[in-house]
Amino acid sequence: MSHAEPLVRFSGVQKTYDGVQLVVRSLNLDIQRGEFLSLLGPSGSGKTTTLMMLAGFESPTAGDILLDGAPITSTPPHKRNFGMVFQNYALFPHLSVGQNVAYPLTVRKVSKDDQAKRVAKALDMVRLVGMADRLPSQLSGGQQQRVALARALVFNPQLVLMDEPLGALDKQLREHMQIELKELHQQLGVTFVYVTHDQSEALTMSDRVAVFNEGVIQQLADVSSLYETPSNRFVAGFVGDSTVLVGKLEIRAGSAALVLPDGQRLAGVNVNAAADGARAEACVRPERIVLHPASSAPAGQVLRATVSRAIYHGDHLRLMCDVGAGQSLATVRLALSSVGASALPQPGDAVGLEFPPGSTRIYTAPALH
């Protein structure tokens, strides 16, 4: 078998619960060996159903799931050799930490000596040495999540599946655990498939991200491509912040521009080959917009604006700017290292906002409901 063959392949997989509405539609997805793949999307987008079909807790209505080239659609969950970590930890309250971690080994009839070695190694891996005799109720939420992780890793699974595993933790602990999980993944080289609706979590941890909406993968890409070159309007809006300007697409000599209601033109990239004259939206990342004092703003891709709010974020200011013409506020990220304290824009200041053509991505506007 060629090494390039994916570890897991979803081929034409569909899932419906009521025979009418497809929760997952015609899913084709390859999961590579050793990668950290996140399934990202809003509630009801099909990401958790996809994970549950891979785990074996749900069966596809159509299509096949292959592991190492062999179909596993009819293989029961306990025979798939996958580790699972859930948001609610699912620890046995009456068993000690050590017994919880040993549980998958007990089920697999591993000898007591071997169990003790593997449990010690797994607890060391998640930094819980010395905790084996405690009960889950004696641990913090972060420690309980580590126990669940140790239990998922203790039997050397081919694949570790995680469903919103950090959702119950507070922000600081969640961010700390994200870094730990990523480090652990790099050490072990095991394939991780991770479900989240938190885009910053997906960007922090993943090698690749599959963005789901309405049962369909909208884009599957590495994190920088996902952020810098969203392939459609949904991804541009769901992953990261964007300033969105509304207008009409104009194509001249093969070059695209968004024409705003007041007649101003902003050149940009026509991402989905929208037709000339179509209702369109331009999305630009806050850090790509260049701020100029109104008095010295260059001609060209510059909109006159007024600062509405300045929000302090420590290392940068987030400026909300009114560009008029019936548009929503433009968001600009201004690194504080690039301006002196005396030159910080204040609410009410007139400014010029420059939209670089290469960063101005134009999409067909979503249909009006």
Rank of each mutant, 00 (worst) to 15 (best):
A168Y: 01
D170M: 11
Q144Y: 04
L188D: 11
V97G: 05
K112H: 13
T196Y: 09
L153C: 05
L166E: 10
V97S: 05
E164K: 12
S137Q: 11
D170V: 02
L166T: 08
P165T: 03
Q143N: 04
V101P: 02
H94Y: 04
Q144K: 15
M84G: 02
A102E: 10
D198F: 02
A152R: 00
R127S: 14
E164G: 12
L159A: 02
G189F: 04
L153Q: 08
R118D: 00
V110N: 00
L128K: 09
T204A: 15
Q186H: 09
Y89H: 10
Q115T: 03
G130D: 00
R80N: 08
D124F: 04
L161W: 05
H78W: 08
P77C: 08
F155M: 12
F192H: 03
L153E: 00
K182I: 10
V154K: 02
K117F: 01
M125D: 02
L166P: 10
V129L: 05
N88P: 03
R118P: 00
V209H: 06
H185M: 10
L166D: 10
D207M: 04
I72Y: 00
D170P: 00
L161V: 10
G83P: 03
H94E: 07
G141I: 06
S96E: 09
L135K: 15
D163F: 10
L139C: 08
V154W: 02
H197N: 14
V209Q: 07
V101G: 06
T196N: 12
T204M: 15
K121S: 14
A210Y: 01
A120C: 02
F82E: 03
S206Q: 02
Q115I: 07
L153W: 05
M125A: 14
Q187N: 13
S137M: 01
Q158E: 13
R127A: 15
S140C: 06
V147D: 02
S140T: 09
L105C: 00
E201L: 02
I179M: 13
M131L: 13
L173V: 14
D124R: 13
G189N: 06
R146D: 10
T75A: 11
L181D: 03
V101K: 04
P157D: 04
S137I: 07
S74W: 01
S96W: 10
Q87R: 09
L184C: 05
R127H: 14
Q99T: 12
E183L: 11
E183W: 05
V190W: 03
N100F: 04
I72F: 02
L184I: 14
K117R: 15
V160K: 05
E180G: 07
T73Y: 03
R174Y: 08
Y103L: 15
A210L: 07
Q186W: 00
R208Q: 08
E183C: 05
H185P: 12
V119Y: 06
T75E: 02
V160T: 08
A152V: 03
G142Q: 11
V85I: 12
V110L: 01
L181I: 13
M125E: 09
V154D: 01
T196M: 09
V119Q: 03
M177F: 11
M125V: 06
V119E: 06
M162Q: 01
T191F: 04
Q99N: 14
L153P: 01
N81V: 00
V147G: 10
A210I: 04
R208P: 05
D114R: 13
D113V: 12
F155Y: 14
A148S: 12
Y103W: 13
T73D: 15
D207V: 10
D198T: 11
K182T: 13
V110H: 00
A116S: 14
D170C: 04
